[in-house]
Design a binder for these strands. Structure first.
Lengths: 335, 335
DNA sequence: CTGTTAGCGCCTTCAT
DNA sequence: ATGAAGGCGCTAACAG
């Protein structure tokens, strides 16, 4: 495989490399006849611009890196969609990398994006990678935290108040008469999990109720099933009468366990609420109550903030956008 | 923001750039004392290797590009997971780009990956982009088709026989006594859709049954809901007694329409089967029958083939891997 | 073991 | 409107 460069194209077309470059980037500066001759050569030789070389000169790529916690979570897929939409309008491409909730993978991907000198990085960090991210930003790669508040005016973020969301979910469970409530989630190192839990605890405390913590190792359907089985393994009397799952994947897993065995009815024996309100929540065996986060807007807003932080680094605008969570009540907590 | 290069690091550490490069790439060739001195400088200055420059020399990046039809489809998310897993073992990163079933977006992403000189591209093409892909491959970017057969010994592919899958689904519907069967899917330009439909039609023909084609503009839950509403808008007598949806997202959408209105029972009035067997299929209101494709293995096998095609371009191994679809029967078609 | 140097392919002045 | 030349940051080959 021959690697065709601008030189070959120039030779083939009988012009100089400068002219080829102009045809590529500013065709209006070149006579039409020359343009078409060069384009013909490009096509004939199958020339493909080398982005590395281009970037090396330009300094930055036309790419936005998005690092998500779990690519299989529809919530993040939807964020990606929102981000793409907005990036596309600006001629930027979004490349998605999956940390799979693993610190090490996240680090690798961040390194990669930084080394690639991407236009910017949108990231839902696994845990306390904030210092590392702050560093990246200082070195020139703008960062926007996604689904995570920054608490630092200098780092942009798009978040939903998870403490509030946890509170809302818990208040709802209390309002339908539940008192022995379990929170299923983890790892708590994930800020989302910690915040939702603490919101829930605060709300429970106000009613004199407690919250049992059932820990999971990841926010997946599989782990939800495990938690469900764990609950079913107990005596009926020891089971919670409601479960608040840290996200919908967990909730759907729990639901599958409970319903499949038929040993506990939802919501009669155990009410269940999730978080995120992914599309599949509404379509579940027992339609799932949830706390909705506006995923697509979160993604597009993140890109928006990124672009602003580049075009107008010192502008006076809100860098920490916060959406409000919204309670969605369905059959899994009805009655 | 100062862009720190190897030169600065070299100066700071009092060594030459060659030594810095060696510390970076072959530390064993450098004395321990020098290594740690250089590393200290790297840390102090916040040096980040410029991947563009590195690639410019190396020729290729350590990245695999994955272009999926729909990032919100858990089937593709799972493929991405499988691919990552395998890539990770080889020190490669998978970057996911979403074509959203749009020809133009796909083209943009393919261009980007080619310009970036990625190690290779895994792609589920929107439609007949095969010539374009063949070209890419000839120019030196290895391609592996995903969820799509190549029919060309020179281009690798990992696919599941969709004609067979369509047949299997249809035979199942026939076997539970259905005769007025509708296929919900589209656009037919998607090979997956066309193949599943033709398999279904063939199986139906053998039983003297026909297949009504209800077309959708995309393989999404939303479009499925639309198709469901369309079915409900008819007189009961004109409705099909079974629906085969081209994928699970559509099927879940159809299911939501049917169940939410309560105007048609599943499976009594209308049996329903989907395709892919995503995790959420089993958790649906009425657990969804489906045709399973082994998503994660498809992804990891694709990476596997890619690596082989690079390490052993002329080796004698099967470049067109084909998995078998597997019928999964659940309540949505039971009885 | 360390230093020097020649490009990788492109873009962008600066001349012509 | 076109051409010539320097350099982006890095690595590998070669010298020392």
């Amino acid at each position: 495989m021959m690697t065709v460069s601008v030189r070959e194209v120039a030779e083939d077309a009988g012009v100089s490399v400068g002219t080829v470059s102009n045809v590529l980037n500013r065709p209006e500066k070149v006579s039409p006849a020359t343009v078409s001759r060069v384009q013909a050569s490009i096509a004939r030789l199958g020339f493909v611009r080398n982005d590395a070389a281009r970037q090396l000169r330009a300094g930055r790529s036309r790419t936005i890196g998005l690092v998500v916690l779990d690519i299989r979570n529809p919530f993040f897929a939807e964020i990606a969609r929102g981000a793409e939409e907005r990036a596309d309008e600006n001629g930027l491409s979004v490349l998605v990398a999956n940390s799979d909730e693993k610190q090490q993978r996240e680090a690798r991907h961040l390194d990669l994006f930084e080394e690639q000198r991407v236009t910017g990085v949108l990231v839902t960090p696994v845990s306390e990678s904030l210092p590392r991210l702050a560093q990246m930003q200082e070195r020139g790669t703008p960062i926007v935290l996604v689904d995570r508040e920054s608490h630092d005016e200098r780092m942009a973020s798009v978040a939903v108040d998870d403490v509030e969301g946890g509170r809302v979910a818990m208040e709802h469970l209390l309002s339908v008469g539940r008192r022995r409530i379990a929170f299923v989630g983890g790892p708590v190192a994930l800020r989302q999990v910690a915040d939702r839990l603490s919101g829930a605890q605060a709300a429970a405390a106000e009613e004199g109720a407690g919250v049992e913590f059932i820990s999971t190792s990841a926010l997946t359907v599989e782990e939800g099933r495990r938690a469900g089985r764990q609950i079913l393994a107990r005596n009926r009397a020891d089971r919670p009468d409601a479960v608040f799952a840290a996200n919908d994947l967990l909730a759907l897993g729990v639901l599958q366990s409970l319903v499949m065995t038929g040993d506990a009815r939802v919501p009669e024996d155990i009410a269940l609420i999730g978080y995120d309100d992914i599309d599949f929540a509404a379509a579940a065996v027992i339609p799932l109550s949830s706390v909705r986060q506006p995923a697509a807007p979160i993604g597009s807003t993140a890109v928006e903030l990124l672009l602003r932080s580049i075009d107008d680094p010192d502008g006076d605008y809100e860098r920490n956008v916060r959406f409000r969570p919204e309670l969605i009540v369905r059959a899994s907590t009805a009655g």
